[in-house]
Design a protein around this nucleic acid. Sequence first.
DNA 1: TTGGTGACTAAAT
DNA 2: AATTTAGCCACCA
Length: 112
Amino acid sequence: VSLEALFAEVLEIVREIPPGRVATYGEIAALAGRPGAARWVGRVLSALPEGSGVPWHRVLAAGGRITIGGGRGAPARRQRALLEAEGVELTPAGRVRMDRHSWGGMRARPGR
DNA sequence: TTGGTGACTAAAT
DNA sequence: AATTTAGCCACCA
């Protein structure tokens, strides 16, 4: 499998994440056939241009944490804003409620 | 091949 | 909850 194909595969998976839901780097890596390559997934998203149509903001670190920009830079705030705009609930600590918005292990739905 | 790096993860403190 | 340490995978010089 060529690198570009794998690259596209990841983007495809991320694009499948419905609004209001989130997934972790590890999840994406596993779905892309590279379990354990969470870091690599992050690298792929880092190369993502703006307006790519890929909801990169729905991809978070394990536990629903935002590890971008050290977690407190402008990028992190932007991601939080994008998520909140889609109805994703975040704790003051900046973590997403994975027990509610997890794409894979979903069980409860936001709203109502 | 070796070593450094990164939008990671898990465990320990 | 916040840091630190060690282990991961894949990329690059």
